[in-house]
Lab assay of single mutants.
Amino acid sequence: NKFNKELQWATWEILNLPNLNEEQVKAFIDSLRDDPSQSANLLAEAKKLNDAQA
Rank of each mutant, 00 (worst) to 15 (best):
N1M: 02
K2M: 10
K2V: 15
K2I: 15
K2D: 15
K2S: 15
K2Q: 15
K2Y: 05
F3A: 04
F3H: 09
N4S: 03
N4Q: 05
N4E: 15
K5V: 14
K5S: 13
K5W: 14
K5T: 14
E6D: 13
E6L: 07
E6F: 12
E6R: 01
E6Y: 05
E6H: 05
E6G: 02
E6N: 04
E6W: 12
L7N: 04
L7K: 03
Q8S: 04
Q8P: 02
Q8W: 08
Q8L: 11
Q8Y: 07
Q8D: 05
W9K: 14
W9E: 15
A10N: 03
A10T: 07
A10R: 02
A10H: 06
A10P: 02
T11P: 02
T11Y: 09
T11A: 06
T11N: 05
W12Q: 15
W12H: 15
W12A: 15
W12M: 15
E13R: 01
E13N: 06
E13Q: 14
I14T: 01
I14N: 01
I14Y: 02
L15I: 09
L15V: 09
L15K: 11
N16V: 05
L17R: 00
L17Y: 05
L17F: 07
L17P: 00
L17M: 07
P18F: 06
P18I: 10
N19S: 08
L20E: 00
L20Q: 00
L20T: 00
N21D: 10
N21A: 13
N21E: 06
E22M: 11
E22Q: 12
E22V: 13
E22F: 05
E23H: 12
E23N: 12
E23Q: 11
Q24N: 03
Q24L: 03
V25A: 13
V25Q: 12
V25D: 00
V25E: 02
V25K: 14
K26S: 07
K26P: 01
A27F: 13
A27R: 12
F28G: 00
F28P: 00
F28I: 05
F28M: 05
I29H: 03
I29F: 04
D30N: 15
S31T: 12
L32Q: 01
L32Y: 02
R33A: 11
R33Q: 11
D34H: 11
D34K: 15
D35K: 09
D35H: 07
D35V: 05
P36I: 08
P36V: 04
P36K: 02
S37L: 07
S37H: 07
S37Y: 09
Q38G: 08
Q38Y: 06
Q38E: 13
Q38R: 12
S39Y: 15
S39K: 09
S39L: 15
A40T: 08
A40P: 07
A40F: 07
N41P: 06
L42T: 10
A44L: 15
A44S: 12
A44W: 10
A44F: 13
E45K: 07
E45N: 08
E45P: 00
E45M: 09
A46T: 01
A46D: 00
A46P: 00
A46Y: 03
K47H: 12
K47S: 07
K48H: 08
K48V: 09
K48E: 15
K48A: 10
L49Q: 08
L49D: 02
L49K: 06
N50S: 12
N50I: 01
D51S: 14
D51F: 10
D51R: 08
D51G: 08
D51T: 08
D51A: 12
A52M: 13
A52Y: 15
A52V: 11
Q53G: 08
Q53L: 13
Q53N: 06
A54Q: 14
